[in-house]
Amino acid sequence: MAVCIAVIAKENYPLYIRSVPTENELKFHYTVHTSLDVVEEKISAVGKALVDQRELYLGLLYPTEDYKVYGYVTNSKVKFVIVVDSSNTSLRDNEIRSMFRKLHNSFTDVMCNPFYNPGDPIQSKAFDSMVSAMMVQAC
């Protein structure tokens, strides 16, 4: 489904980033990095927004020629970014939403793990396998 999944901390440094192995993984890092500006823009507009616009799911951040970038931000300002292939047109908004939901649930479990220090890179195996499951389905 997804080609790249990233978790970004409150202070905008990566906690977790994983992409399908290709020759230029760096490109994904770049894509995720540039998407943060769009996320920031969407969050800062929240003060005026109506209740139904204050959802955690931010929707499509921006499309590029080959990829679509979706964003999600938790109440603790941790950002999730999912990059999917543009050619994959069958993917509905609802499915993206449920992917983020799963990601969020899994992240919450990581946060509640007493052996995890908030702010450290995520090394949890459970989280890792959940992410793999979301990526594998595509290829």
Binding site: V51, R54, T74, N75, S76, N105, F107
Partner: peptide, 13 residues
């Protein structure tokens, strides 16, 4: 806890 409790709430204004 807050991470867990705020999972289903809208963003705070």
């Amino acid at each position: 806890l807050i991470e867990r409790f705020t999972r289903d709430t809208a963003r705070f204004k």
